[in-house]
Amino acid sequence: MSETKLQIQNLSLYYGTHQVLKNICLDVLSHEILGIIGPASSGKTSLLRALNRLNDDVPKFRKEGEVLLEGENIYTDLPVWMVRKRIGMIFALPTPLPLSIYENVAYGPRVHGMNQKKILDKIVEETLQSAFLWDEVKDRLDHPAMRLSGGQQQRLCIARTLAVQPEVILYDEPCSGLDPISTAKVEEAMTMLKSRYTQILVTNNTKQAARVSDRTAFFLMGEMVEINKTEKIFTIPQDKRTEDYVSGRFG
């Protein structure tokens, strides 16, 4: 339970001369849900994008420091597609591909070379069940994913990410566009997925972090102010700024 999955070592990120993340050191443990909270422009999303290497194509992006996935450097030891397969990402707005529900989930396995219909069928069913979407869509798998509701789309995106068998799942404010009931379903799915995946949840909703995460980190202006067990962050924070933020005095 407590072995380290992801080691972030002295990570700094820059867009041009603007530094968005300052010397972050952070170990993410296997099978934990790590919540990351903080106000806008605190560097949370930039951190996630760096872990998925989505910043690679951003002009003038630069990083210092290293990120190790089970000891392997994700920037030098692994090809980028492998990093993204092992570290999946759920975006803030649901982003289904313009394909059917079935093909959205099968997309990942297909690009990684899986073409056997039976195995794909099995993957689609299993991952949709893990994402608590199967019962709602099992009779219309060939329908366009774009016609699903926002909450269903987001759970489809989770199923789609699960289908490539990642080890780590990154969530970038996954419920920011969802109503409370859809949010609850996504959170339920996250909790159920704990046994198999390591999850990092970036959220603007501090209550959400309090509900689902095991540990919580507080980011401010590109720095990690504090990280601790979630109940400690929300009850006896060590830093004045953390206390101000979680008690709602700013943010």
């Binding site: 998925n52 989505l54 597609w81 492998m82 990093v83 993204r84 397969k85 999946g88 990402m89 975006f91 982003t95 289904p96 591909l97 313009p98 997309y107 990942g108 690009v111 990684h112 995106c157 789609r160 990410t161 490539v164």
Partner: peptide
């Protein structure tokens, strides 16, 4: 669309 696809390792 592009980012979703890339994020899946395509």
């Amino acid at each position: 669309f592009r980012e979703s696809s890339l994020a899946l390792g395509a």
